[in-house]
Design a protein around this nucleic acid. Sequence first.
DNA 1: GTTGGTATCTGTGGA
DNA 2: AGATACCAAC
Length: 771
Amino acid sequence: MSHYLNELNEVQRNAVTNINGPVLVVAGPGSGKTRVLTYRIAHIIEQGAAPWEVLALTFTNKAAREMKERIAGVVGPQASQVWAGTFHSIFARILRSEAEKIGYPSDFTIYDTEDTKNVISAIVKEMNLDRETYNVNTLRSRISAAKSSLITPKLYQDNEDLREEDRRANRPLTYSVYEKYTARCKRSGAMDFDDLLYRLYELLQRNPDNILEKYRKRFRYLLVDEFQDTNHLQYAIVRKLVNYDHSPRNVCVVGDDAQSIYAFRGATIQNILDFEQDFKPFGIKVFKLEQNYRSTEHIVQSANEVIMHNSRQIQKKIWSDKGQGQRVKIIKARTDTEEGHRVVDTIIEQKNRYHLSNNEIAVLYRTNAQSRIFEEYLRRYNVPYRIFGGQSFYQRKEVKDLISYLRLAVNPGDEEALRRVINFPRRGIGETSVDKISELAGQTNRRMWDCIPEVEMATRTRSAVADFVAMMQEFHRRSATDNAYDLAIDVARRSGLMDELKKDTTIEGIGRLDNVNALLDGIKTFVEDPQPVGAPPMEEGEQPTDIDTRLSAYLQNIALLTDQDEKTDEKDFVTLMSVHAAKGLEFKSVFVVGMEEKLFPSFMSLDSHDGIEEERRLFYVAITRAEQFLTLSYAENRYRYGQMRVNEASRFLEEMPRQHVESTAALGLAKAAERGSRDQSPQQASSGVSGAFPKRTPPPARPVVDPAGFKPSAPDTIQVGMQVLHLQFGQGEVIAIDGHKDSRMASIRFGAGEAPKRIMLKFAKLQVVEG
DNA sequence: GTTGGTATCTGTGGA
DNA sequence: AGATACCAAC
């Protein structure tokens, strides 16, 4: 395993071998950051540390998994003993074992965003507040921001600045919502995503039984990935763990201020600057990884120039020695559908000309809603694709309904689960009864579950409630002993969920039933193939987490999963995802679409300078995903809010340096279009009467080839004059063939009026049409 | 309590 | 445009 140091450049090697004392690594895109992190961990272990003394914190499960795999590649199976995971999952694991010390059950529930919003909505309703001024999303982000700044409800109430802000926004009772929200989560035995951080901090701060020392000793080496995305609270926890008297301060944070794209949820690059200051007295070493191993020069230099438009940043010069490569291509389309069409055309063209596989291509957009049109055309042209993001499997209603039953079985205090399932499927327990229970719970600050027997209700309802309670009690009892699958199956059947789903025989209904069955299959897999849950053992020799196949273990396992964590079946597909989701990934060819003002940059960002700069960093992230081909596209007219709107080209297009752009025509025209669009009143445009703005053009009328019946003919059988089928282009006539052997090219005309396409026979899949 | 229809709102990112 | 919230009628 000692050869790994040879795979590093000098700066990388220094970042890997300086394992003692504080280290800051500023890592540009494609600079081998993950390699540095994993080799550093390997090196720490090689130098004699035990794997379980290393704690590596990431932002996504995927990053953590990848890191573990790569560590395993260097140090072997002991890699699984390293504590590597997301902030949320590692902290959740610690909180599970220490929960009682801060007044939580160890089987606490984790509330997702939906649960959180429901709780807040219920509070707003109960307080008789106007739900427009007391907007759920605003309240949620305000509460989240408060927690991330370590502001308790009490501190919030006493904080004049915050209170003044709320008064000015006509929301003077925000502090009270926050207080009630916190109390409700607490009595439900539930933590939201912020609590997983906040409560851990609280635990370390209160330090019952001197657990702080325990964890400080345990984690002799701490590494943090994507440090630019940490918020104040996360850094506070990091400091708690490593910054104390006589600490070795073996802490390494890796980040790139230029790729900070989560300020909207409290991340601050101030943490990077603070880190440097805080650890300066302890001999901090700073390493800058500036060589980009991913992209060609046109791309890297474009990125450099674009980010220069931002004011604050750590000085660095990213460079590449991969050659100039291709210039950046810009596609200007008249409408969103045309954009979709032309992007997909370009994808197919690139596949043919450069022999790219689908895997090597990604379409990135600012908002998930933009994916539709690209889906349409990709499907039309038989290009396999996969969409990431959007609604996660675990958030689908039917899946969450069953999970809610399971959650309630494990933790009867879980109010959100209770509210969700008490009358679904319908069993005659209506809103009135639920409100009564909720009211009593609020007045006495007890769990709703415990209040149920004391609430008066009609006899009919009473018996329905009694049946429900009896059923759930049995499930609860069994949750302590049964394995997750046996119990889940019974819950699904006896709750009536399955029957309810089977009633719906529409296509969607069958889909929902399939989803629930898929969830049950997932639980079965969990039981049959028990993975050591979460983090590795705490002590040497401890068994890898007591193999626990009960429901509570399963729920812990899935609470922090997202769709991106689903294993893909390694198929060859074009990737469609948001720019945010693309962070950390790379593709040979990248399309950044919807490059329009108010879309990218998002309209939400336009009123603040910081907002624009974050969008620009997001754009920086987008273009630095590309290895060889980068294409930017925009549409002059786009359907938004159900109406055709005129859009200006994004300012970021203007910021693209001309010498790195393939043709400035699209840029020049962008300005003309801009002027033109001002002359054109939006009303005129959206009315569609003028005829200048075509209705949604239907997908192209090219013949679609059924992939199932498609059998490509051998390249050498193709001759001039033949009719051939192409999976994407449909049927066409071979009008010429030139070149020899492997470089034989065919000119094929696919549509009557169209220019012939030149296709390399060796790569293209063509089927000769018989007859 | 339930159902179905209408009105209204919303509309970034994600652990 | 689509999802959700709300309301009136059964």
